[in-house]
Amino acid sequence: MTLDRTSPSARRTELLEAAYAYVLAHGLSDMSLRPLAAAVGSSPRVLLFLFGSKDGLIRELLARARADELALLGRLDEPAGLAAAVERLWDWLADPEHRPMLRLWTEAYTRSLVEPDGAWAGFAKATVDDWLAVLAACEPGADEADLTLALAVLRGSLIDLIATGDEERTGRGVRRHVERLARM
């Protein structure tokens, strides 16, 4: 008999949620199964049984983070136009409540670039595609270069904000881009 690790059991779901809360607080790159298991009330053996491997657990945690991010983005009212979209997305990104998830996103994005195989495979590309789709939905027919520039401004400003905590400077930069978009 083969165990189907893809169909969620209540315990698997419970441990995934607890592990997600743990990595939001502690990061994912240096995650070790023993401390994680202790923190979530399990054992490394149970985690390996339920998720197949450490990489399997990381893949599940990345999928969970991406789903969380997309759910939050889905709650944004679709504004009319790219300028309004960038402004609203920046307000969402700059909200301190979202920092743990965005730190995790930054960590996973970077790791996906330097370790393109294994658990991190495809995360960076998938998130670029997700964000371009959100921006495109806000201004159907927008030029792909304009969408790419908007994404670059948002992503670069986000990374800078996470690195420095300087909401005022990064916010001014994004607002300047919004002003230029509004004049187009």
Rank of each mutant, 00 (worst) to 15 (best):
M101S: 08
S7K: 10
A37G: 05
A63K: 00
W120G: 11
E14Y: 03
Y20D: 12
A152H: 10
L132I: 07
V23Y: 13
L33F: 01
Y109R: 06
L24P: 07
R111N: 12
G56F: 05
S9L: 12
A63E: 10
A10W: 14
S29F: 14
R172M: 13
E69S: 11
L93M: 04
T6F: 15
A94G: 05
E14Q: 13
L61A: 08
S112P: 07
L28F: 03
S9F: 03
L89Y: 10
R59I: 02
P100C: 08
G122Y: 03
V178R: 02
P96S: 03
A142K: 00
A37N: 01
L70C: 01
L102M: 06
E78P: 02
A124N: 07
A142V: 03
V40G: 06
P96Q: 06
A25E: 15
L158D: 02
P96H: 06
L135H: 00
V153H: 09
E87Y: 01
A63L: 09
H26C: 13
P79H: 05
A84Q: 09
E60Y: 04
S7D: 14
G118W: 06
A19I: 10
L89E: 09
A133N: 07
A163R: 13
I58Q: 03
W92V: 07
R66N: 07
P79A: 13
A126W: 02
R88G: 11
G122L: 03
G56V: 02
D146I: 05
A21P: 06
F123E: 00
R12L: 10
Y20C: 04
L181F: 03
L36F: 05
M101H: 06
D143Q: 11
V178Y: 01
A80P: 01
V114A: 01
G165V: 12
E115L: 12
S29Q: 14
L161I: 09
I159D: 12
E144V: 14
D68T: 08
D91W: 07
R59C: 07
L102R: 06
I159E: 14
D91L: 09
T2D: 14
L73Q: 09
T2G: 09
G52E: 04
H98N: 11
I162N: 09
M31H: 11
R103P: 00
L154Q: 05
R176Y: 15
A21W: 08
V134A: 10
W131L: 15
P96E: 08
R12M: 13
L161Y: 14
S9Q: 08
A67R: 02
D68F: 06
G41M: 05
D117N: 05
A65T: 00
E78G: 01
W131P: 04
D143F: 08
A19D: 09
V128Q: 01
D95T: 11
A126V: 02
C138S: 14
W131Q: 15
D129K: 05
S42L: 06
L73S: 04
P116C: 01
R11Y: 00
R172G: 12
L73R: 09
A67Q: 01
A38P: 01
D130M: 07
W131H: 15
L47D: 00
K54V: 04
M31Y: 10
E60V: 07
T2W: 08
D55V: 04
A126C: 04
A133S: 09
H26F: 12
D129P: 02
E87F: 00
R59N: 00
L113P: 00
P140R: 05
Y22R: 12
R88C: 04
T148Q: 13
S29P: 10
